Simulated assay, not measured.
Amino acid sequence: MQVTFLGTGGAVPTTRRNTSGLLLRRDGERLLFDCGEGTQRQMMRFGTGFTVSHVFLTHLHGDHVLGLPGLCQTLDFNDREEPLAIHTPPGTRSTVENLVGVTGARPGYPVRVNEASPGGVVLREDEYEIRAFATDHRTQSVGYALVEDDRKGRFDREHAEELGVPEGPKFSRLHEGETVELEDGTVVEPEQVVGPPRPGRKVVYTGDTRPTGTTVEAATDADLLIHEATFTDDRAERAAQTGHSTSIQAAELANRAGAKRLALTHISSRYAGDASELEREAREVADGEAFVAEDGQSIDVPYPE
């Protein structure tokens, strides 16, 4: 799993930071979270490709959605035939549908717009699901958590051989949770040779929000929490007024959630020249790793040990 930050700036883009956009790659699938103005150019610039299957919008402020019409049009120019699913907060479906067709032309491929209810599963695939959770901004807004299923426990090959299980299909059947019978009539149960299930990975993206308990719940034990940090701590009052968070608030929330890594994003243009103070503040508070994300930065999300 790999996350590429396409845009890490706040409402106003700078020469260093584009408006909000994040691409997550998992086993060849590409998922796009938010689509601010210029997102498709960032996708070209950083080599992520356009073959996204789902777009997840946290809210409909311009710095998170104004790149959507252009991206949809480019996909059409590229003769896309596969459906595109766009997920958006409750009550915003018609606005997104109008945004996709703002030029008066609809894409030649199917576009589905689904409303993502907080606390619900937005997307369910074979090995993971994406859940929406409530955030606290100045409009209808949600965050998203990608949560992988537990993986199979480790197969103890050495012990299986000691029990007399021959190498081959019976190994696989045991690992799949089936009981096997040996030629001498001995029955071997899966729990004798397979360890406990191992957790999958969790990546959480907040979009714009004040610190919330629902984010803590969604981000519990997250491998990567991507939390907005629009301001430094000296502007905490401004953050509260505008529905945003400070770097220290994001770090404190990550601690409460037990998140392993914290990526700070949605950086205000007032820090266009130097965002190091946000990173310094977060690192002084965070129990785990904390860093300010940069446009074009890609990070791998390994499985928990």
Rank of each mutant, 00 (worst) to 15 (best):
Q2W: 03
Q2I: 07
V3E: 04
F5Q: 09
G9S: 02
A11Y: 11
T14W: 03
T15K: 05
N18W: 00
R25E: 14
R25W: 07
E29F: 14
R30N: 15
L31A: 10
L31H: 08
F33M: 06
F33Y: 08
F33L: 15
D34W: 08
G36I: 08
G36V: 03
E37Q: 04
G38V: 13
F46G: 12
F50H: 12
V52P: 09
S53M: 10
S53P: 07
V55T: 12
L60H: 00
V65L: 10
G70K: 06
Q73D: 15
T74S: 09
D76A: 15
N78G: 07
R80Q: 06
E81C: 12
L84N: 03
I86Y: 06
G91D: 13
G91M: 09
T95I: 14
N98L: 09
N98C: 06
G101F: 01
A105Q: 15
V111H: 13
N114S: 05
E115S: 10
P118D: 01
G119L: 04
G120F: 00
I130T: 04
A132D: 00
F133N: 00
R138L: 15
V142F: 09
G143N: 01
A145Q: 04
A145K: 01
V147R: 14
E148I: 12
R151D: 01
K152R: 15
F155E: 01
E158R: 08
H159A: 01
E161V: 12
E162L: 13
L163C: 14
G164T: 06
P166F: 00
T179C: 03
L182P: 07
D184Y: 10
D184E: 04
V187W: 01
V193W: 01
G195N: 13
G195E: 05
R198D: 08
P199R: 09
K202R: 14
Y205C: 03
T206L: 12
T206P: 02
T209L: 03
P211T: 08
T212Y: 01
T214L: 03
T214N: 02
V216D: 00
D221S: 00
D221A: 06
I226N: 07
I226R: 06
H227I: 07
T230P: 02
F231T: 03
T232E: 15
D233Q: 13
A239N: 10
G243Y: 07
S245T: 04
S245P: 05
A251L: 11
G258D: 02
K260R: 14
K260Q: 10
L262N: 03
A272N: 05
G273W: 13
D274S: 15
A275H: 02
E277R: 15
E277K: 15
L278Y: 12
E279T: 06
R280I: 01
A282G: 04
D287Y: 15
G288Q: 07
F291E: 10
D295W: 02
P302V: 14
Y303H: 14
Y303R: 10
